[in-house]
Simulated scan of single mutants.
Amino acid sequence: MALPSRSARRLTLTATAGTALVCALGLASAPANAASVETWDKVAQCESTGNWQIDTGNGYYGGLQISLATWNAFGGQAYAAYPHQATKKQQILIAEKILAGQGAGAWGCAPGTGLSTDKAKPYPDGNDLTGDGKADLVALESDGSITAADGTGNGFSNYHKIATGFGAHVNADRLN
Rank of each mutant, 00 (worst) to 15 (best):
K89A: 15
A149D: 01
T16M: 11
T87G: 13
A17D: 13
I98G: 12
E47H: 06
V138P: 08
P83Y: 00
G144Q: 03
G63T: 01
S67G: 12
T19H: 13
N171Y: 09
S5R: 07
I98M: 11
N176F: 04
A28Y: 06
R10C: 10
R6I: 10
A44W: 02
A104K: 03
K97T: 13
A34K: 08
Y61L: 01
Q91S: 12
A28D: 08
G50R: 00
G112R: 01
I146W: 09
L64D: 04
I66Q: 05
H84I: 06
T130V: 09
A15R: 06
N154L: 12
Q91I: 05
I94P: 02
V43P: 06
S48W: 02
G62Y: 01
Q91W: 05
N176G: 12
H160I: 09
S29E: 15
P4F: 09
T70M: 09
A78C: 10
A24T: 14
D136M: 00
A104E: 03
D173E: 14
T56F: 03
L137G: 12
N33C: 12
G126S: 12
L115G: 03
P111Y: 01
V37Q: 10
K89I: 14
W107N: 08
G133H: 04
Q85F: 03
S48P: 11
D128H: 07
K119I: 10
Q53M: 01
N72F: 04
L68P: 08
A95S: 15
T113K: 05
A168K: 03
V138L: 14
D41S: 10
K119Y: 07
L99Q: 00
S116K: 07
G63V: 04
N154V: 09
L64S: 02
A110C: 02
D136C: 06
N33A: 14
A95W: 02
C46W: 02
M1F: 07
L21Y: 12
Q85G: 03
L115I: 05
W40Y: 07
P111Q: 08
N33Y: 03
G112L: 04
D118L: 06
D143G: 09
N33V: 01
A135F: 00
I146L: 13
Q77K: 14
V43C: 01
T87K: 06
D128S: 05
A30P: 09
Q65F: 04
A148M: 14
G103F: 00
P83F: 00
G75E: 08
T87N: 11
N33E: 13
A30T: 10
G144Y: 03
G76M: 05
K89L: 14
A168V: 10
K42H: 10
N176S: 15
G165K: 01
R174K: 14
T70L: 11
D143V: 03
G101I: 05
G105E: 06
Y123N: 12
N171F: 02
L129Y: 15
N176V: 15
P122N: 07
T12I: 04
N154F: 12
L64C: 09
T164E: 10
A30Q: 11
D132Q: 04
C23H: 10
G75W: 01
A80M: 02
L137K: 08
Y123M: 14
Y61K: 00
L175R: 03
Q85N: 07
T87D: 10
G101K: 11
G26C: 11
